[in-house]
Each structure stands twice: as structure tokens, then as C-alpha cells.
Write a protein that binds this DNA or RNA. Structure first.
Length: 366
DNA sequence: AACGCGGGGCA
DNA sequence: TGCCCAGCGTT
């Protein structure tokens, strides 16, 4: 059952909600998807889901949500875990700062909030990883506070209803003000989810299904006949290209992995030793130089299949090489890892693909 | 205010 | 392929 959506209400409608808001709430309670985090009222579980859903689609998050809650069922369980284990469960989900902040916030809750989520907006906002959206979402959905939220969906929906002739950035700012005025007292959680669900299922970015929209009579953009043009598009930043060589040093079945630095791209995750090469760099030459610095001057390298990955702001190419030579000396931040250990390490999808290119399959990883 | 940060799904 | 998505932290 969809707990938040279908919960029976004994209260009459809040005094300040408009008829179209009641209509949208009714639509939501009839159309809400049956999602794992809607089957619970555990604030901790709802918090985890909100973090996973940042810039991440529902279908992608679901299996991660189940695994995470099984391994870390409570704030205290998460707080007591090692960061490495948290990152391992996050492996493949992306935006790894989310996992570090989730872990850090759980430790603050364990120490200063009796192992529970603080029940007011200011205290939530003070926690790592709680920005305006997440504080609003956890506050309204998990804790029942009468607070608004704005995400990409809500900004788009309100921009269209109001007919704002503004771009995404400005629409988002205006949406916060409007959303604050629209909060449905005592039902903010369902109301906020209704706005988001409408944006996800009906009022989509490219092809809004106005024929199925419960708010169409109130929508200025629909009335003007061109809702898809709201909010105004802005030019995209160009994607920069990154090239790396990656080296696979073997010691029997084990392979040398190094941990990336704590900041920047793929921070704190494990990968094959790699070196960036410029657009004109000769991969085999750089690979040979790096290989010999680790494994002696008689080392040779054999190229493997090139791996490509597109990120929002980056086009990454990795040219992997298998090294033949005497056993490499692991650098301080590196060690030889057996294949069966890979599942317990934080690996990016790119690192997993690169490992596969040199013949190593990380069980349970894409 | 702008930028860096993953990855998957879909037209 | 280009674009979008239940954003946050740093500079």
C-alpha cells in the first residue's frame, strides 16, 4: 500500500488550499507509484531515499535502496560503519560525495541527536548533505513539517502554471517563493510529492501530457499552447575531453589498485593506476614509462580494449594496458587486490569497465 | 553565481 | 548522440 498517498485523513481540508490543489492531491493519491520508500514512515529510510534520488532516476535507485537499508537499517548502524563499506554499497550510483555526507550526517545524529533525525528545518540544514531540497523533502515527507521544497520537477511545473518567461535558474528561485505560499498545511509531504510526481509523470520536460493533467485549467503555459518551451532553454556548456592510460599490474590473480585522492573526480574510490595524457599524447609510450617506474626497466605493456564514458561535463577515454614484468612495488595509497575483494571496495562504473577490459570481472558490479 | 561532481535511460 | 534527472558543496 502507498502509505503516504493513501493514508486516511480525519481532518477537513486545510483552510488555505485552493480547489486545484485539492484536485492535484487527489490525483496524486490515486496515481502515486508504489515505491519502496513510500511503504515506510521511518524518517531514516526516507532520508536515505531522498539522497539517492538526487540527480538520480527512481529505477536506478531502487536496488541500491534495498541493499543499503538491509546493511544499514538504522542511523546508528550507518554511523558505526566504515566509510569504505558505505562507499562500496554506493559503488556505481555516482556523486560519491553523497555517500560521504550521508555517513558523516549519521555520525552527527548518533552523537548529538540521540541517533535520530532532528525534527526542525534549521537543524537539518546544518547537517552534511542537507541542502535546501533535501531539508524540505525530509522535513515534509519524513517528519511532517509544513515546509516547501523545489527540485527540477517542481520548478518546471510552477514555471508552466505561472507562465514565467524565465530560464531554469531564475524559475527555480521564483519557485521557492511560490512553493512556500502553496504549502498545504498538515499535508505538506503529500503535496510536495504531488508536485514532483506531476512533473515526473505528466508535466515532463520535453513532451508534457496536458491531456492527462489535473492542473491544466490553471496552467498559463498550456493556455498559450507551448508548454514545452517553459522554462526557457539556455545554452549548454561544452563537454571537455579527458584521456588516461591505466595500467594493470598483476601478482598472480591479484591486481594492483590505488585509491584516488579525497577531492575531485571519483574522490576516494579505487581504480587501476592511471596517468592523464593530453589529446596528442601517445598512450603506449606513457604506459611504458609508468609501467617501468613501478616494475623495473624490463617491463613491457600490452594494450587492451579502449573504454569510454560520458559524464555530464566530461568525455572520458581510458586506454588500459596489461603489464608484464617483475612484481610492482605498490605505492603508499595502493595495494594488490584479489578479484573476490572487489565487491567490498568503492569502484566507479568507469573503473569497473576498465577492469573488465583487462579481464577482471567484479562480481555484482556493472 | 559558477563550477565540479556520475551514471543511466530515453527520444 | 544529446539531454534530463527527487542537488550539494566549494570557490
Amino acid at each position: 500500500m502507498k502509505d503516504g498517498a493513501n493514508r486516511k485523513r480525519s481532518r477537513p481540508p486545510a483552510p488555505h488550499s485552493h480547489p486545484w490543489q485539492r484536485r492535484l492531491l487527489r490525483w496524486f493519491r490515486g496515481h502515486a507509484r508504489d515505491l519502496p520508500w513510500r511503504r515506510t514512515r521511518d524518517p531514516y529510510a526516507i532520508w536515505v531515499s531522498e539522497v539517492m534520488l538526487q540527480q538520480t532516476q527512481v529505477a536506478t535507485a531502487i536496488p541500491y535502496f534495498h541493499r543499503f537499508l538491509t546493511r544499514f537499517p538504522t542511523v546508528r548502524a550507518l554511523a558505526a560503519a566504515s566509510l569504505d563499506e558505505v562507499l562500496a554499497l554506493w559503488s556505481g550510483l555516482g556523486y560519491y560525495a553523497r555517500a560521504r555526507n550521508l555517513h558523516a550526517a549519521a555520525q552527527v545524529m548518533a552523537t548529538h541527536h540521540a541517533g535520530e533525525l532532528p525534527r526542525d528545518l534549521e537543524a537539518l540544514r546544518a547537517l552534511p548533505g542537507f541542502g535546501p531540497y533535501t531539508a524540505g523533502a525530509v522535513g515534509s515527507i519524513a517528519l511532517g513539517l509544513d515546509v516547501p521544497l523545489v527540485d527540477g520537477n517542481v520548478a518546471r511545473v510552477l514555471c508552466r502554471i505561472e507562465g514565467w518567461e524565465s530560464g531554469a535558474e531564475e524559475s527555480r528561485a521564483r519557485a521557492w517563493e511560490r512553493a512556500g505560499a502553496l504549502v498545504v498545511v498538515d499535508e505538506a509531504g503529500d503535496w510536495n510529492q504531488a508536485l514532483m510526481e506531476l512533473g515526473q509523470a505528466v508535466c515532463t520536460a520535453k513532451a508534457p501530457a496536458c491531456g492527462r493533467c489535473p492542473v491544466r485549467p490553471e496552467c498559463l503555459a498550456a493556455e498559450r499552447g507551448d508548454p514545452a518551451t517553459y522554462p526557457l532553454a539556455r545554452p549548454r556548456a561544452e563537454r571537455r575531453h579527458l584521456r588516461f592510460v591505466a595500467l594493470a599490474f598483476f601478482d598472480g590473480p591479484r591486481v594492483l589498485l590505488v585509491r584516488r585522492e579525497r577531492k575531485g573526480l571519483f574522490a576516494g574510490l579505487w581504480e587501476l593506476p592511471a596517468a592523464e595524457i593530453g589529446p596528442e599524447g601517445q598512450a603506449s609510450r606513457v604506459a611504458l614509462r609508468v609501467a617501468r617506474s613501478f616494475a623495473g626497466m624490463d617491463a613491457t605493456v600490452e594494450p587492451a580494449a579502449i573504454v569510454r564514458q560520458t559524464l555530464t561535463h566530461r568525455e572520458v577515454t581510458v586506454e588500459p594496458f596489461v603489464v608484464q614484468g617483475r612484481r610492482a612495488r605498490p605505492p603508499p595509497q595502493g595495494r594488490f587486490v584479489a578479484p573476490q575483494e572487489l565487491a567490498s571496495l568503492g569502484l566507479s562504473s568507469l573503473a569497473t569497465k576498465t577492469l573488465r577490459a583487462v579481464g577482471i570481472c567484479a562480481a555484482g558490479k556493472r
